[in-house]
Every structure is written in C-alpha cells, then in structure tokens.
Amino acid sequence: MRISHELIERAEAPEALYLVGIPNGGVPLARQIARNLAEIADLEVPVGVLDTTLYRDDLVSSGARPKLRRTEMPSAVDGHVVVLVDDVASTGRTIRAAMDALMDFGRPSAVQVVALVDRGHRELPIKIDYVGKNIATGRTDLVKLRVSGETDAETMEMVLLRGEGGTSA
C-alpha cells in the first residue's frame, strides 16, 4: 500500500503507468498494486506479465532447461512508464533480463522497478526505485515470500531461511 502511494506521488503522469509483474512472485504483487491504485486514485492501470526465462544469461550448456512461464502484455508499452514488479530483488540479473524482454515489446518512455524485498548482493548497476523492505542477507540465505492466492496479495508472510540454498531472485 505504501509503495502504491509512492508511485502516485512520484509519478509525473500517473495515467501513463503500466505495471508488469515478473513471474512468479511479481504477478500477484502487480495485480495488488493495480487494485490499490484504482482505490487511491481511481486509476485504471494496465497489468502485464513478462517471463524473463528466454532472456536469462545463465542458460548453461548442460542440464535441464528451466520451465517457461507465461507472458501476457495486454497492450503496447510505447509511451508508458513501465513499472517492473518483482517480489525479491537481489543480483539484478532478473531485472536486466526483464528490461531486455520489455524492449522487444516497444519503447516505454521510462522504466522503473518495484521490489517488495531488496536483499542486496547486486551484481549489475541496477537501482530499485521502490523498495518494500531492505533485508540484510548472506549470499546463501533464501528469502521466501508467502503470498496468499494468485490474485490477492493482501496477506504476505516473509521467511528468511539462513544458508539454505542459492539466491532465489
């Protein structure tokens, strides 16, 4: 909700906003932000879904290929301020892939990033514009967000598992 308010306050042209959720965690968040914007400012903001798998830089030469997820961009992004929505931001590689993917759908007037959690460990020069919560983590920690339901992100639970696995986002 706070992020939704910030989006409205900082947007020069709120009507040009276009939310794009990055699967899986970013999609219910993007939908929730869209509902919040409708409530706060009576704004109808388009919501897209953009899978970054085909744009990843770590498709190794051996081993199983990651399963693809759906991409749905309801309208052209040209001239819109596209807000990429991810649940947990870390290395910045997913955001980089999402930006490349986005450019194949047109020429947004600007691109911004929302992350509910920023856990640090950036490996690319990417700035998160709107952060829900910064969490200090170790590289091998695993941050899990439990979001209730595919479309309703109203209730969320955050779990930090110390040293349980690799980076999740």
Binding site: L54, Y55, L59, D100, A101, D104, F105, G106
Partner: peptide, 11 residues
Amino acid sequence: VGEREVKKVPT
C-alpha cells in the same frame, strides 16, 4: 513469442 511484433528472443 511468434505472435509478438519482435518475433525473436536471445535464448
């Protein structure tokens, strides 16, 4: 992907 305007991905 084939239905996009840019029908190409860098995979």
